[in-house]
Design a protein around this nucleic acid. Sequence first.
DNA 1: TTTGTTGCAAAGGGTTTGCAGGAGA
DNA 2: TCTCCTGCAAACCCTTTGCAACAAA
Lengths: 129, 129
Amino acid sequence: MRKTPQREGILRVLTESDRPLTVEEIWDRMAENRSGLPTIYRNLERFVQEGWAENVLGQDQVMRFVHCTSKHHHHHLQCEACGRMVEVDSCGVQDSLQQLEVLSGFRITRHHLSLFGLCRECQSAEKRH
Amino acid sequence: MRKTPQREGILRVLTESDRPLTVEEIWDRMAENRSGLPTIYRNLERFVQEGWAENVLGQDQVMRFVHCTSKHHHHHLQCEACGRMVEVDSCGVQDSLQQLEVLSGFRITRHHLSLFGLCRECQSAEKRH
DNA sequence: TTTGTTGCAAAGGGTTTGCAGGAGA
DNA sequence: TCTCCTGCAAACCCTTTGCAACAAA
C-alpha cells in the first residue's frame, strides 16, 4: 500500500484518539491535509481489512472507527460515562467456550466481545457527588 | 402496545426464522398482510427496545434482526456455513470479567458476545467430502 | 513510466419523516 | 371517541461510484 499524506493523516487521527470516531469526526480532525470524504471511506475500508482499525456500531446506530494497537485477537472496553475506549489483549473467554462447544454441538471458531463499564476516573467522579 | 396484524406478521416471521433477517427479507416473508417498509422499520425499533428482538450487523455490513427467546442476558451463536443462529442462555464470561476489572481498573457493567462457528450438521458435511 | 490514489460531483440506496386516513381498545 | 398505527410518497443522508487528474515508486 502506497504511503500518502491522506493515509498518514487518517491513521494519525485514529491513533491520537482515545475513543472511536465517526468518518466526519476523522475528517474534522485532519486540519491540514484534509482529504475528501470518499478518500476517508476508501482508506478506512483498507485499514479494517489490514487489521489496523476496527469498525464499531454504537448504541446510537452510528458507525465509528478505532485504531487497533494489536493486530492479534483482542477486545475493546469502553467507558459509558466518558466514552474512552481501551484495548484488552488478554482474552479470558476461551475456556468457557470449550464448555459451550460441548453444550451446543458447534465448533466455535471466532468470537467478538464488546465490553462496557466505568473507567477508574469516572468511578471516582461518581462517588464524589 | 396495540395488537395489529402487521406487528403479528413481523413477529411471526422473526420467530419462524432460524437466522437473522434483513428488513427486506422480513417484508418478503410477510406474504399475506404485507406491510409497508416504514411500518417494519418502526416496529423493529420498538421490538428491539422491548427486548423482543436484537439487531446484528453482519460482516457484509448489512443490518439484520433476530427474535430473542429470552429477554434476559444471552448471546447468539451463528454457523458460518449455513447461517443458522442459536441463542445461548448460559453466559460463561462473567468470571473472567472479574479478573479484567482488576487489570483494567474499569467496573464492567455490560457486555456483548458474538459467537461464530460450525454447527453439528455442517461439521459432518465438512468431513464427508 | 507505470500503476495506485485522490478529488469532485453525481448517483445510489437503505432508512426516516410528514401527514392524512384507518383501526385498535 | 380517542389515540395509536399504517401507508404512501417524498425527503434524508450516509456511502459508494465513475472518471479524469495526480503523485508515489
